[in-house]
Amino acid sequence: MSQTPNRRPLFWLLGLAAFLVALSVASVALLAVRIDRVGEPAFVFLTWNLFLAWIPFVLALCVAAVHRSGGPRPLLWLLGAGWLLFLPNAPYILTDFIHLGRIGGAPLWFDAALIGSFAATGLALGLTSLLVVHRVVEARSGRLVGWLVAVGSLLLCAIGIYLGRYPRFNSWDVLTDPHSLLAVVLQRLADPLGNPFLLRFGVLMSALLLCSYLIAWVLGRGLAGPVAALSGKQDVPGRSR
C-alpha cells in the first residue's frame, strides 16, 4: 500500500501528457479541415511551431527525471539550458495572430479559432514545463531561488519571442549563427531606450506571461503533491509527519 501514492505522479503526468496531446491533435484537426475545405496548405507553419513548443515540455520532464533519480549535476545543467533555450517557442505561437486576416479562403472566426487553439496549446506546454522546472529548482535551492528562476525565465522568454518574431532568429541560432544573434543583442543593449516598440513589446509580453504563470501556479497548487514528487518531495496529503 505504501507504493500507491508514489504511482500518482506517473498517472498524473500520463493524464497531463494525454490532455496536451489531445489539444495538439484537435489543433491539427482544425488545420486539416481548413486545408480540405480551402484546398490550399495555408497555416501549415503552425504545425512546426507546435512541434517546437513540445520540446521544452519534454526537456522539463527530462530535468525532473534526472533530478528524481539523482543524476549528475552537469546533465541537469545541460538539460536546463536546452529547456530555457527552447522555452520561447511555446508561447511564441501567440504572436501568430499577426497572420489573422492576411490569408483568405476561410471565415475570420474560423482562422481565429485555429490560431487560438495552437496558441493555447503552446502556452499550456510552456507554462507546464516551467511549473516542473520551478519545482525542481525549488527542491534543490529553495523557494526564493525557484521564483527567481521562474520569473527570470519568463522575462528572457519575452525577449526570445521578440527575437524570433522580428529579427527572425531561431533557438538553434545560438549554435549556428551566434555572431549575428550577439550583434543584435549588443546593439539593443547599447541603446536600451532607442527602440520604444521593443520596450512596449517586452513589457506587455512579460506581463502576459507572468500573469499566465501565476494563474497556472495557483491552479497547480491542487496538484502540488504529484508535481512535488517529481522534484523529490514525498509529502502525501493527510499523512502526518
Rank of each mutant, 00 (worst) to 15 (best):
V44T: 13
L155R: 07
P72S: 13
G116S: 00
V63E: 01
L125W: 06
H134C: 09
R37H: 14
Y166V: 04
T121K: 07
A32T: 04
S212I: 13
P107G: 07
N49C: 03
H179N: 12
E40L: 14
P41A: 01
V185N: 05
L23P: 11
V21S: 12
V136P: 11
L209W: 01
S117K: 06
G101W: 07
V132A: 00
S129L: 07
L76W: 11
A228P: 00
S180N: 15
A229L: 01
F110S: 02
R140I: 10
L148I: 10
R34A: 06
C211V: 15
G15A: 07
L78Y: 03
A65V: 13
C157E: 00
A113S: 14
C62A: 15
W77V: 14
P9C: 00
F19K: 03
I35E: 10
L14F: 05
L59D: 04
S180V: 02
C62K: 09
R140C: 08
Q234Y: 06
A229W: 05
S129M: 03
L148H: 07
L199T: 14
L163A: 12
R68Q: 08
L59H: 02
G220Q: 05
W109P: 01
S240L: 14
T47W: 08
A29Y: 13
I93M: 08
T95Q: 10
A120V: 11
V151L: 10
S206Q: 11
G15N: 01
L59I: 09
L199H: 12
Y92P: 01
W217V: 04
L230G: 10
N49D: 04
V58E: 01
G80H: 06
I35Y: 07
L50T: 08
R165V: 12
L130H: 06
A112I: 07
V236H: 11
W172E: 02
S206A: 06
S24Q: 06
R135I: 02
V149N: 03
G142K: 02
F118H: 05
L204Q: 15
L30A: 02
G220C: 11
Y213V: 10
G82S: 06
A32G: 02
S206C: 05
K233R: 15
S231H: 02
G232Q: 07
F11Q: 13
M205C: 10
T128C: 14
V44M: 03
F11T: 02
L156P: 06
W83T: 04
L199S: 09
A190F: 02
G70C: 01
C211P: 11
N6D: 13
H99W: 04
A150M: 10
G222H: 13
L75S: 05
D235A: 15
P91E: 08
